[in-house]
Design a protein around this nucleic acid. Structure first.
Length: 784
DNA sequence: TGAAGGCGCTTTTTT
DNA sequence: AGCGCCTTCA
């Protein structure tokens, strides 16, 4: 810890030691961004610029937050636990817990994850008898979250037609429902916290006074509300603003679809009068050819803040490019290359296969599986999202707060206890009529339904009574048993895994109470008295609390803290951790990771760049950034591949290779297969027999024919890898061909799907964008 | 109550 | 094709 600054390069050093003023750090991929962030915090503290309590550092993922905390702890002999280092949602949660009254929330509010939010909306729509064809819960969810991320309450949303007005009304009704039930969704965490700061002068003043240094990671991914929140917290415009240290990379902004606003970087630079933007351009990850490719590609984007990565490593190996006749061939080739790599001593976990969309993984998985190569697919359900775990948590939530209708609805009849749809309906009617929670409404339901429901209420009450003195792990175990969940899964054929997950939940509870410092003896439902800064929360003057930063962090009961943790941190998606396996994931999921060997697959027009991106403003640029992220994951060896045909959603599709190939430096590439076929010309192919797949005679492998050949009914006997030339013979059109349409003018066929009378072409028209037209119907003339 | 079959959707995803 | 969700039927 003696010399924090040792081994920093000049750019990093400049960033770390900037004066206490707003700063924007443009941190390229692999440029030591996290190191700069953490060293900056350590340096500020060590040199007395700020105390640990005066720092707020915010990131997007729990993983990144944890990483920051760990690294900081390694640099300074301080307790990082109490520091305000966390995710936007985590920090907002913390503030709302501390000021629950001022925020208008119950002390132990529960947090809805996206799934929970969707179910809550479905429940709402059903209750209001809304036509869910016309107003799908999914759309409403999107509408609401979008509004909240813009900082808009129902009253603030402009609706210019009846349809949108209805959405606004439903948004209002949803907020009321949440309020009644004491629950808060993810977007609400941020918006509530923003409003808390905005409308409560004392609290705002307190935090503005307290946080003198605010550090933001992945700034390019912040949304409108997050930026507003930061401005408020930093005291922007007050004349004594905190020093905001924003670190980001506009070239790696790939989350516009979920509200990220790269424009925040520009806005920040201007609004905070950033005096100098520091660029971290020295890359410590990739070899030269890989970096050249990345630089070359991204230079095709307009409106960049501007950055060029450089490396001291040599050119290294060329970037290898492979064209397959089909997705199956592409997969077989990947398997062969991976075999070679493994044979040469490469560890499987250092090999990553990236793709644009999850649907692409299946073919590759099949190939790896048949070849007996261990692999791991990222994505999918994570621990706390699993149904059985959510069920157990719902029981815990009901014990904590019987008014939580979402939890009630989830487990009132699971395991089944004779409470059918009719009973639930009667209960919901009663709840509406008396304007109360489902639990409270049970008293108003007569007859047999009423008595079964009453038994359920008694079950929950009994659980609450009997767990009163239990520790959290004991309570979790008790609940999984007494609820009948374990019993239920014993009789289910796939139940064993689920039982194991429930047992794992007990283990998770044990780990949680230890890590959070409650200890194994702490009663789950009791506020830990004497625990750092505890009791003032339950009663007492909020203002006083505000003035005493030592009373934070907020203390929750172990139970509430655990439930919060489960919502805010969904946990890993069940990794068979430890096993040396090839890593498979989407490009999005790969952001922030690095591997020795990277395959970027499915580089085809329509897939990557994805066809839907053509519909969105700046869609193509975002796809290019995605490609940039993908390329910069590789340290030593990078493979790019595409296939002429692939089965997608059960349909054979034909694609030309991605335009991104045209944006890479020829000098860095090595084509393992002739590069020109997709555009009709055959020239220019530089075969590399020695290592290329070309020499392996792919097209005669029986298992590949199934992939390559079009359906027999189509009468096409491909399987020779030249599917689209065959198509040309049949339909008169081929991918890559220029066409003229009476209405849309000149265009080029970018994909053909379906066959015979059903054949459709995706055509990119110069003046009208991409259209999908039926070849049998549209009046198309071929042009050169 | 639970199994079976039909329907529709299918880019990317953290909290 | 493959999955989740919903309805239907025994």
């Amino acid at each position: 810890m003696s010399n924090l600054l040792a081994n920093l390069n000049a750019e990093q050093l400049a960033a770390v030691t900037l004066p206490d003023e707003p700063a924007l750090i443009l941190a390229g991929a692999g440029s030591g961004k996290t190191r700069v962030l953490t060293t900056r915090i350590a340096w500020l503290i060590q040199n007395g610029h700020v105390s640990p309590a005066g720092v707020l550092a915010v990131t997007f993922t729990n993983k990144a937050a944890k990483e920051m905390q760990t690294r900081l702890a390694a640099m300074l002999p301080i307790n990082t636990r109490g520091m305000w280092i966390g995710t936007f949602h985590g920090l907002c949660n913390r503030m709302l817990r501390a000021h629950f009254r001022d925020a208008g929330l119950p002390q132990t509010f529960a947090i809805l994850d996206s799934q929970d939010q969707l179910s809550a909306l479905k429940r709402l729509l059903k209750g209001l008898n809304v036509d869910d064809e016309k107003y799908p819960a999914k759309n409403l969810q999107y509408f609401i979250n979008n509004a909240k991320e813009q900082g808009l309450r129902p009253a603030d949303v402009e609706a210019n037609d009846d349809y949108n007005r209805r959405f606004v009304d439903l948004y209002a009704a949803y907020d009321e429902q949440c309020q009644r039930e004491g629950v808060v969704d993810f977007a609400e965490l941020l918006l509530r916290c923003y409003e808390l700061l905005r409308y409560n002068d004392a609290i705002r003043a307190h935090y503005q006074h307290r946080f003198r240094h605010i550090l933001v990671d992945e700034f390019q991914d912040t949304n409108v509300l997050q930026y507003q929140w930061l401005k408020l917290l930093a005291g922007y415009g007050t004349g004594r603003a905190a020093a905001v240290f924003a670190v980001g990379d506009d070239d790696q902004s790939i989350y516009a679809f979920r509200g990220a606003n790269v424009g925040n970087m520009r806005d920040f630079e201007h609004e905070f009068r950033v005096r100098q933007m520091i660029k971290l351009e020295q890359n410590y990850r990739s070899h030269g050819n890989i970096l050249d490719s990345a630089n070359h590609l991204i230079s095709h984007n307009a409106r960049r803040l501007g950055k060029n990565l450089r490396t001291d490593a040599g050119h290294g190996e060329p970037v290898r490019v492979f064209q397959g006749g089909s997705d199956g061939q592409e997969a077989s080739w990947i398997v062969e290359e991976i075999r070679d790599q493994i044979a040469q001593g490469m560890s499987r976990s250092e090999i990553a296969i990236l793709y644009r969309s999850n649907a692409q993984s299946r073919v590759i998985e099949h190939a790896l599986f048949s070849a007996g190569i261990a692999y791991r697919v990222y994505g999918g359900l994570r621990f706390f999202e699993r149904a059985e775990v959510k069920h157990a948590l719902a029981y815990l939530q009901l014990i904590e707060n019987p008014r939580n209708d979402a939890a009630f609805g989830r487990v009132v009849n699971f395991p089944t206890r004779g409470i059918g749809a009719r009973s639930i309906e009667a209960l919901q009617d009663a709840a509406r009529q008396y304007n109360c929670s489902l639990s409270e409404a049970v008293a108003y339901v007569p007859g047999k339904a009423g008595s079964s429901l009453g038994a359920f209420i008694r079950l929950i009450d009994q659980m609450r009574a009997e767990t009163r003195r239990m520790t959290l792990p004991e309570m979790v175990e008790y609940v999984t048993n007494t609820s009948g969940l374990i019993q239920h899964y014993r009789t289910e054929k796939e139940g064993q895994d689920r039982i194991e997950n429930l047992q794992e939940l007990v283990t998770a509870a044990q780990a949680f109470v230890m890590e959070e410092g409650y200890g194994l003896d702490a009663p789950a439902a009791v506020l830990p008295a004497g625990h750092e800064g505890a009791p003032a929360l339950a009663e007492g003057d909020q203002a006083q609390q505000v003035l005493d930063p030592e009373q934070l962090p907020v203390v929750m009961t172990p139970l509430v803290a655990f439930l919060t943790h489960a919502s805010l941190e969904a946990g890993d998606n069940q990794a068979q951790a430890g096993q040396d396996a090839v890593q498979m994931m989407t490009v999005h999921a790969a952001k922030g990771l690095e591997f020795n060997v990277v395959f970027i697959t499915g580089l085809e027009e329509g897939l990557f760049p994805h066809e839907n991106s053509a519909m969105e403003a700046d869609g193509l640029e975002e796809e290019r950034r995605l490609m940039y992220v993908a390329i910069t994951r590789a340290r030593e060896r990078l493979y790019l591949s595409f296939a002429q045909s692939r089965v997608l959603h059960g349909q054979m599709r034909y694609h030309v290779r991605s335009r991104f190939f045209e944006e890479l430096p020829e000098s860095a590439l090595k084509w393992l297969t002739p590069p020109q076929q997709a555009y009709g010309g055959m020239g220019g192919g530089r075969r590399e027999k020695s290592e290329s797949a070309w020499g392996r005679d792919w097209f005669k492998r029986p298992e590949d024919v199934a992939y390559t050949g079009t359906k027999p009914t189509g009468g096409m006997d491909t399987g020779n890898g030249y599917a689209d030339s065959k198509r040309a013979a049949e339909t008169g059109f081929r991918v890559g061909q220029g066409v003229f349409h009476n209405k849309f003018g000149e265009g080029k066929i970018t994909a053909i799907e379906g066959e015979g009378a059903n054949a459709h072409a995706q055509i990119h028209f110069k003046r009208h964008g991409t259209k999908k037209l039926a070849l049998g119907i549209a009046k198309l003339d071929p042009i050169d």
